[in-house]
């Protein structure tokens, strides 16, 4: 099954990236940044799912 340490690190990283992405969007004028941020956000969700699907015990730092 999943490597527990790897799952914790990935979830923490996802939360962190989301918080910083939202903070970046709020510190810029205009709505275009939200489109750009949504693309990055979807890419991060995709990478998180991909990481979990390819997780092998022992690949963890």
């Amino acid at each position: 099954m999943f490597n527990k340490k790897f799952v914790v690190k990935t979830i923490l990283s996802f939360i962190l990236a989301t918080v910083f992405l939202v903070s970046a969007c709020t510190s810029i004028q205009g709505p275009e940044i939200w489109i750009y941020a949504t693309i990055i956000g979807v890419a991060l969700i995709g990478y998180t799912v991909y990481s979990f699907m390819n997780d092998k015990p022992g690949t963890d730092a």
Binding site: S13, A17, F20, L21, A24, I28, A37, I40, L44, S51
Partner: peptide, 18 residues
């Protein structure tokens, strides 16, 4: 490493990209 690099590079991509 190759597992963590996406997390390291995501916000620099946002910063330089914007």
């Amino acid at each position: 490493d190759k597992v963590s690099c996406v997390w390291y590079l995501s916000m620099p991509a946002v910063a330089f990209g914007s």
